[in-house]
Design a protein around this nucleic acid. Structure first.
Lengths: 220, 220
DNA sequence: GAGAACAAAATGGTTAACAATCAAGGTGCG
DNA sequence: CGCACCTTGATTGTTAACCATTTTGTTCTC
């Protein structure tokens, strides 16, 4: 039935983490659709793990925001409405702004050349129409900024927010014309960080994520 | 040995939630000190619950940020360093800023009279030196702002950040002279929200939390 | 004294059962 | 005919006993 390709004979997957990984992958692959019920017994059967492990996995995924658990009524794949995606991204906006500001404070000369290099490659990717490469550079840039910020709490919050939003984020990246909008915004963030201007970097980061919000709203 | 007062004969506490509540209370009461190991078997014994329940409770508390779980090494009460408290509060700063801004957008006339009333009572409390009352009004104000923001995601993030920081927050509130510093900041937030100025409200909220950060740093 | 083998403790995971809860569907009564 | 009530089935929540794995501390040897 479900997502398990017939060939692979249910690899070890002994641990709850592994089960969580597989459920997560199945959700992200779209094989579990939003709203779908996730019955412990079925998952336990499908993934060859005990109910306890499945339960732990569901707790973890609930904590990550990918599934929703109601008392005594089980877990279902969380359906993130556009409205909620906007709310998530609003929070993301201010936290990424913080990270950008702190990155501008901490950035070293070596980091600057690296960031500029990422920017150059982004330009090339957009010019060449290579969306996938651009998307990879995108996440690379955001990751690097977070790293430079040296703000573990912000990083943790962001990772959770992103996990909850992957689907919307994904659809957005594929929108035609989207790279042309976001590229200059990314370059602006890089510029401000490299000029070591915390305020400017925060503004640029917020402007960027604000444009993401707008695009989300238009998406419907 | 540990913190369990000898008298109480281990009341039911059947559910995992109940166990989590009791562990949380024990931590917040200071009877489990930061860094202390939380051994499943001991807790299970002390609270009269099964190991499974204790496990679930520890997972939940880990998710709340009160305990820290390392793979195969168990759970310990999370020790929040001043440095980490600062990081937490930095994130709090920008998210509370967002909430204040959105609150300024959504505020109704009725809300305005309510906010101003809270402000008036805060002034009275400070003048009368009633720290506890002021502290209650403080959380009431913050809660109300979050409510007005209509931003469930921000609320969720904030509640988790606060839970992780209770101890520092608590010590801070008792610092002599602290209310005199924070009162005008709170009043400024109220003013800006009531004038329906999102930018002003965000600035005021950030200024306030920034001053909390400074106080945290001084605390040592 | 340093390092390796070993033993104890604790977590992670499994199974099988049972209790509690919710959603439905059927029954009986007005 | 409609509505309240009860029964039933499915699923979650919890427990207990048990084993595997990992970590840690100790002891033994060189």
């Amino acid at each position: 039935m479900s997502a398990t390709s017939a060939a692979e004979p249910v690899e070890p997957a002994g641990r709850a983490d592994a089960v969580a990984d597989r459920i997560r992958a199945t959700i992200l692959a779209g094989d579990f659709v939003p709203g779908q019920r996730l019955v412990e017994a079925e998952l336990s059967d499908a993934f060859g793990a005990s109910r306890g492990a499945v339960r732990a996995a569901l707790l973890q995924l609930d904590h990550e925001g990918l599934v929703e658990r109601v008392a005594n009524r089980g877990a279902r794949v969380r359906a993130v409405s556009v409205e909620e995606a906007v709310a998530i991204t609003e929070v993301r906006m201010v936290v990424e702004g913080l990270c950008a500001a702190k990155a501008a404070e901490n950035v070293t000369d070596a980091d600057i050349t690296e960031l500029r290099d990422i920017g150059r490659r982004m330009q090339e990717a957009v010019r060449a129409g290579e969306i996938v490469v651009y998307s990879q550079l995108n996440t690379m840039l955001h990751d690097r900024v977070r790293e430079l910020a040296g703000q573990p709490v912000a990083t943790e919050v962001l990772s959770r927010l992103l996990a909850r939003n992957v689907r919307h984020q994904f659809r957005l990246a594929l929108r035609p014309g989207r790279p042309q909008v976001s590229l200059p915004e990314h370059l602006a963030i890089i510029d401000e960080i490299c000029s070591r201007s915390p305020e400017g970097a925060e503004r640029a980061a917020r402007r960027h994520v604000a444009s993401v919000i707008e695009a989300l709203r238009d998406a419907t």
